[in-house]
Structures are given as C-alpha cells and as structure tokens.
Design a protein around this nucleic acid. Structure first.
Lengths: 219, 219
DNA sequence: ACCCTATCTAAGCGCCGTCAAGTTTTACTT
DNA sequence: AAGTAAAACTTGACGGCGCTTAGATAGGGT
C-alpha cells in the first residue's frame, strides 16, 4: 500500500483539477506542463530535470513517461503552450476595433512583451531540438498558426489598399517576424550594450515597416 | 580558428602542433576547442560530452578541467572561436576596395552564410548560458567586436553623406543585426515553410535598408 | 641538483534520462 | 455485479554525464 502518507492539499504537489489524493493523479499531463513552465521561468532550462519535476508534482520518476515519450516531448508541449499563450494574447489585439495600423503596433509590442516576460520559454519555442525533428507536428503547427496572425494583418492592410502595390503581405510578415525575433533575442541577452532602450529601437523598426504603407506620412 | 576549412590532419586523436606521444599533450586547449567545434557541427550540441571529447582527443576525463573551469567555459571558447571566424570572414569583405554599398551587401550575405554553414556553433554563440553570466568577458567582447564592423560600415556611409541625415549609424546597425539574426534563425529552423528562398527574403530585407540611403533609387 | 608549477591520470560521487517489471485503479463489456 | 483489458502509476536498476579529489609526471628557472 503505497502513498500512505496522505497530507492535506497545502503544497505545490497538489493535484489541481482533481485534488483528491488518489493513486491516479487525474491531471498529470497538464500539471507537468504547468510545473515545467514555472520551473524554467524561475530557474532556467538547466533547472528542469524530470526527477525533480516528478518529486515536486508528487509522482514517481517514471510517471511522466506515460504522458510524454521523453523529455523532449515534454519540452515540446511546454513550448506549444507558450505559442498558445502568445496567440491568445495577440488575438486580443488583432481582433480589436481599432485601425489596422494601431493593431499592428500593438501586436509588435505584444510579441516583444511576451518574449521579455517568459525568456526561457520563448527560447525553448525556437529551440533547435524541437524544430529539427518530425515528431512535434502539433507544436510546429501551433507556432505557424501564431505567425499567421501577422500575415493576416498585412493581408487586411493590402485589402484596404493601405499597402503599397509592390509589397507582398507574406514577405512583409516574414521579415517582420524575423526582425521581432532578432530584437527579442538580442535585447534579452543584453547584446545591445550601447545604451538604447528596447522601446526606442522597436519604434524605429516599426516606423521602417510603416514606410511600406500608403498615406502614413512620416511622424 | 577551427572553422576555416578542414586541416590536413587525418587522425582525430592526434596532438596537432606537438604530435609526439608525450605525457603532456602540448596543445590541449586548442585541440579541445577544435574537436568540440567539429563534434557539434556533425552531431549537434547534445552530441558533445566532455568524456567522449577527452576520449577522442586521447586524454583522461579530467584533463580538460586544467584548461577550462567547466563545460560552459569550454563552450564559451568554442563560441568565441566562432565569432573570430565570422569576424575574419567579414573583415575580408569590409576591407575591400569596392563601393560601401556593395560591401554592405556582401557583409550581410557573409553573415547569413556563416550561420548556415555552422548552425550549431552559431546557436551557441547566442546561447543564453554564455550571455547571462559575467564569467565570459572575453567571449562577449569578441562578439561585440564583430558587431562593430556593421556599425563602422554605416558610420562610413554617414561620413560620405550617403546616409539620410535623420538616420543614426548605430541604430541602423542594431536593427540590421537583429534582422540578420532573426533571418538566420528562422530560416535555419525551417519556420518559413511557405515557399520562399533565403536569398529572396535577404534581398528584400537589404532593399529596405538601402531605402535609408541617399541616391539609391528604388530599382 | 633542486623545487615549483603546470599538466595529466585514476577513481569515485551524485545527478541525470530512461527502461523493465510489477502494482493499482479505471473503464468497458456482458 | 463480475470479469477483464487498458491506463496510470511505482520500484529498482543501468549507463552516461559533469565534476572533484588525491596523486603521478614532466619541464623550466634558479
């Protein structure tokens, strides 16, 4: 009879949705993802081991393997959750009833804010391990869904004839995403040591993208 | 400079400069860096363990610790070598006797070519572990030296009054670096699945940067 | 000739990811 | 309600890992 030390649910090891003390956790998969996201936010990626994670959640070392093939599969799920968070955040912006240009600006700021708020998770979302494999289709699909928000924004601009005729929505979105990713990474790691604020250079980048628009005269 | 094409050495376990079979290796530090760069290029970062590395180089497992404080210090040295390789490659371009604009284009292509040729090492050069620590000053200095090449390029453009007066050389260089980093990463991981070539989007990005110049009329 | 220091070795500690075999609970069938 | 198959979880163990400690070896400066 294992698990005889039944304690009331005060600690981090509780079982979330179904918080009875049962042999079966009841919600282990999601709990593992959430706990992992929490750990890497606090301690970084190196701070996450499956053993400590299992301890903290209150299950045995092998339990996670019934929900994830291996550690990489867990990381893929954490990264996927990150893209979901980002997408809902961006959706709130994109679906607003404001001018497209304003929505674009806020979507840019939102992206960088997310990267700044969850640096390790953001790193994970672009990790080589998760993209150089064909085992994480779900994760990769979520990522591209996220990207598609920006494409759609530019397509709407194009439809409303706010985009210069020679500009292509997809190509603009790709370049914007690359720029955002570079800005997020380089500022997060502190490579822009020469005094400049992230806001300043973001506004600068945004202005350059807006030069592809019609009728937006410079400041 | 572990990267500048393969050395004529055939054996992986040889002792490079002093290839006699002595108790002291004679050139262990550099050999470790070169062997590490080789391993991560072939097998990725996870393929590199200090034990296998020591075996391959022909020393005991503890020997590397007399040259590097820990594994991270070795990785920092490998990343630093990467920035050195990149810098010499870029220097060859920047010091040419061509119009500044051409040199800029080639410096951009050269950057992306390097990232594509040594993907894992490039990843390492921007790894969180090496930037979130104050123990790798040498490495970080080399990185910023590299970046300074781009700043100088824009400063020269400014001096020759080829830059629009409202443009700032440093800010332009920062934005260019961010764009390059984003392009390198996103294309390497295959995130731009929608058919578009790296060359196409690079040229597109370059054109946008050249709109900051004077006298370069759009195609 | 001596010692000092840098370099390298051998052995071992604790942590890690993962697996195999067995136990307990749930779900489904009749 | 009983029986059974599947799902969820546990225990124990294996090999690989980064790193440390204690000791051996080599070579240069005096």
């Amino acid at each position: 009879m294992p698990n005889t030390t039944e304690s009331p649910n005060t600690s981090l090891t509780d079982k979330k949705a179904s918080n009875k003390d049962t042999y079966h956790h009841g919600n282990l998969r999601e709990t593992l993802i959430e706990a992992s996201a929490h750990i890497i936010k606090i301690q970084g990626l190196e701070g996450l081991s499956l053993r400590k994670l299992a301890d903290q959640v209150g299950v045995s070392r092998a339990a996670p393997y019934h929900h994830f093939k291996d550690k990489n599969a867990l990381l893929a799920a954490v990264a996927e959750a990150g893209f979901e968070t980002l997408r809902t955040q961006l959706n709130n912006v994109v679906d607003q009833d404001k001018p497209l240009l304003i929505r674009l600006r806020e979507a840019v700021k939102g992206y960088l804010a997310f990267a700044h708020q969850y640096p390790t998770q953001y790193d994970l979302m672009f990790s080589h391990k998760l993209w150089d494999s064909d085992q994480f289709d779900d994760f990769q699909r979520h990522a591209k869904d996220c990207f598609r928000l920006y494409v759609r924004l530019f397509e709407q601009l194009k439809q409303q004839q706010q985009l210069k005729p020679e500009e292509d929505a997809l190509r603009l979105a790709q370049l914007l995403w690359a720029t955002l990713h570079g800005l997020a990474k380089l500022t997060e790691e502190g490579l822009f040591s020469v005094a400049i604020s992230i806001n300043e250079i973001t506004d600068y980048a945004l202005n350059r993208f807006e030069s592809s628009l019609i009728g937006v005269d410079k400041k």
